[in-house]
């Protein structure tokens, strides 16, 4: 068992070095403050930082420009609230793992819009890992967005929205990410939904969704396309309880790092 606060590691591939941290569960404001300062805290010689964490209590995080809908009485309405610096829809952080990637780069700062390669590489890595564990994960082909949708007209919750790079299992979104450019570089937040929450009961998590009948079937997977040389992330045990313990912060660090290296290469 790892200890939360002091769990740091540096991974290196070619010229890229990633500093990863598994942090202890914290209140929303503290989590957001730490994420917002990540670009300032990247040590010299480190290409990117990854922080993986949970939340000390169920919390609703709003996208950067979001406000609560007026008169809305929803299961998440009374949760503690924070606003992320990243865009996208609101997230109920309950039975989920959050990750935050920070990449300091002047070339990234001058760009506009999302960093497609980073989204795809991280999400492809998650898809590949979940398929290795037996889930029919893939990137969504759908999008609920268009230029006329406007911020108030998209679904309120991130996991009710679809963009082509979201990770879905049988059409149900289980991973969503959003980015922010700053004068220093780029931040990407991501949420991996493990189980449904009483505060958003219509949204199933990974562990609520049936896996393939045969793990072997899942190994004919996107790995051949996206990660031909990568070792598969194996299911040590096929029982649901063991799977639940496997989908933890360490797993998240390994999988996100794999995608991050691909994006930086």
């Amino acid at each position: 068992m790892y200890s939360y606060c002091n769990f740091f590691m540096v991974a290196r591939l070619l010229d890229s070095q990633i500093l990863s941290q598994i942090d202890s569960p914290k209140p929303g404001l503290e989590n957001m403050t730490l994420d917002e300062s990540m670009l300032d805290r990247i040590p010299a010689g480190i290409t990117a930082m990854l922080r993986v964490y949970r939340w000390s209590q169920p919390t609703l995080s709003l996208g950067h420009f979001q406000t609560m809908p007026e008169g809305n009485v929803a299961p998440w309405s009374n949760l503690p609230r924070v606003t992320r610096k990243t865009g996208g829809g609101a997230i109920v952080h309950h039975h989920e793992i959050t990750y935050c990637i920070a990449i300091a780069s002047s070339s990234l700062a001058s760009k506009k819009g999302h960093h497609e390669k980073l989204y795809r590489a991280v999400h492809d890595s998650i898809v590949d890992a979940l398929r290795g564990l037996g889930w029919n994960a893939q990137l969504s082909e759908n999008c609920t967005c268009n230029i006329n949708s406007g911020i108030g007209r998209s679904p309120f919750l991130c996991f009710d929205r679809r963009s082509p790079v979201d990770v879905v299992i049988d059409g149900k979104k289980i991973v969503g990410s959003a980015q922010r450019r700053t004068s220093q570089g780029l931040i990407q937040h991501g949420s991996i939904l493990l189980r449904s929450s009483v505060h958003a009961p219509h949204l199933p998590g990974i562990l609520d969704i049936d896996r393939f009948n045969s793990l072997e079937k899942s190994k004919v997977s996107l790995r051949e396309n996206a990660f031909p040389d990568a070792e598969p992330v194996k299911a040590k045990d096929a029982t649901p309880s063991c799977l639940e313990s496997q989908l933890n912060e360490e797993w998240c660090v390994e999988i996100v790092n794999r995608g991050l290296f691909l994006a930086l290469s």
Binding site: T86, G87, G88, K112, G113, I151, S163, V165, Q179, R181
Partner: peptide, 14 residues
């Protein structure tokens, strides 16, 4: 220096 922000579907950009 930053004077405003624009949000696209997956990112906020200054």
């Amino acid at each position: 220096k930053e004077f405003g922000e624009v949000e696209s579907v997956k990112a906020v950009s200054p």
